[in-house]
Design a protein around this nucleic acid. Structure first.
Lengths: 226, 226
DNA sequence: CGACGAAACTGATCACGATCAGTTTTGATC
DNA sequence: GATCAAAACTGATCGTGATCAGTTTCGTCG
């Protein structure tokens, strides 16, 4: 029962309310001290090693020791940077997800069009390696103990969907007596469900997911009443 | 890459189209040969041992060896009955899920009422031990390689939701130009999404899930258009 | 610069899930 | 009953993820 929180390399003293230094892919932060630089480099090496190995062999087939070897760090070091192996996968995908979320929110077409345009890059990302994406989505959705930066990805996705709903309400395209967050939540529900049917149980293909998502959102807007 | 399918104890020669022998909780099947009886008993012991240990200690904290000891079987035997430890948890919940699914489908009230009445027992089951339920839902939803009996649970749930939709269409409560399966799928989407928000990320409580489910389904029926 | 404390790092080590060669049980055949 | 093959079982063993006591690196202060 007694938790033993091991002290990990400090998560960057500054970075209070502001950006996380980056925004692109390249982990380009230019923090000062040698310690911080070393840590960033090591972290970057670990993530790069993990990314390539996961792509080459898959997640389950890649051992932590392999990652450490390719990243040129000791076997114990890995777990100073991630709580466990699964978190490593989450960090790898997090880089991609952030890049997607930094794009501008679509403004053209019907609300359904915009929701789809917003969600499409994620579907494309998952399609690149569905096996890996399955592990990612599973861990992302079912781990309360994930670091906040990771949980925030979900939140950001929902925020984007809500924002689209809000704009649509302002334009008179959607009813105004329902909160945009609630609408966003309904959309997120359909999206998550279809992604799960695709990646999780392999019941659907990527093509079907897109089609069903469009159809489902259209029905959501129209309603099921006669 | 090369899979090595180990031959597990045969899954019961007869039992073709019919019942799975049971229906209640007690694994009461009266199959003939001593072999079959032994296997059933052993399987029942393993499941009972796992169930009690999971309840006492949680899933991660329970070791396979503990289960074997309490079930009075050798450590290797466990994996003749389940592919891995996670599957063990799935089988434990499967017993409960089957019992729930064997109930009659609700027929009273609005379609939303009926969908809720149908889904409520599952929410109650999850509420009994949310930590365990999280593991269960996660594995159930994100493992294509699960045995068919387990994957079928999902399907049965969706079938129930569809049946409710179909009845409602016949009564003129829902539009008839949308397939009942599609409606069921939309409902399942909302349900799954809320369960995930509850068990997965701990974002919601059980109470909120019920409320939001009702609200979400109502909106689904009404539509989001002005 | 030298010395010191703290942070970061390391690989030996542990516990666990899973496997497998070897053993026991079962039921069919004579 | 005796004999045999197939099915089921077993615990020793293996590879893995994760941990920890011991070591190195870094920044600071006299």
């Amino acid at each position: 029962m007694g938790r033993k929180k091991r002290a990990r390399p400090v998560a960057s003293r500054r970075a209070k309310a502001g950006q996380e230094e980056d925004g692109g892919a390249g982990e380009a932060g230019a923090g000062g001290s040698k310690r911080e630089r070393n840590k960033r480099e090591k972290r970057a090496r670990i993530l790069a090693a993990a990314r390539s190995l996961f792509a080459e062999q898959g997640f389950d087939e890649t051992t932590g020791r392999q990652v450490c070897e390719r990243a040129a760090v000791g076997t114990g070091t890995l777990f100073l940077y991630v709580r466990d192996k699964r978190e490593l996968l989450l960090w790898v995908f997090e880089q991609d997800a952030r890049r997607i979320l930094s794009r501008p929110i679509p403004t053209r077409g019907t609300p359904v069009d915009r929701w789809l345009a917003f969600l499409n890059p994620f579907l494309a990302l998952y399609a690149r390696d569905t096996r890996l994406a399955r592990n990612y989505v599973r861990e992302l959705l079912f781990r309360p103990e994930n670091p906040p930066e990771l949980m925030q990805l979900n939140q950001a996705l929902r925020a984007g969907l809500s924002e689209i709903a809000e704009t649509a309400q302002a334009r008179g395209e959607l009813r105004k007596d329902v909160g945009p967050e609630e609408m966003g939540s309904l959309v997120a529900g359909q999206y998550a469900h279809l992604v799960q049917a695709w990646l999780g149980s392999g019941r659907l293909g990527a093509r079907q997911v897109r089609a069903r998502l469009r159809r489902g959102l259209a029905l959501l807007v129209e309603g099921l009443e006669p």
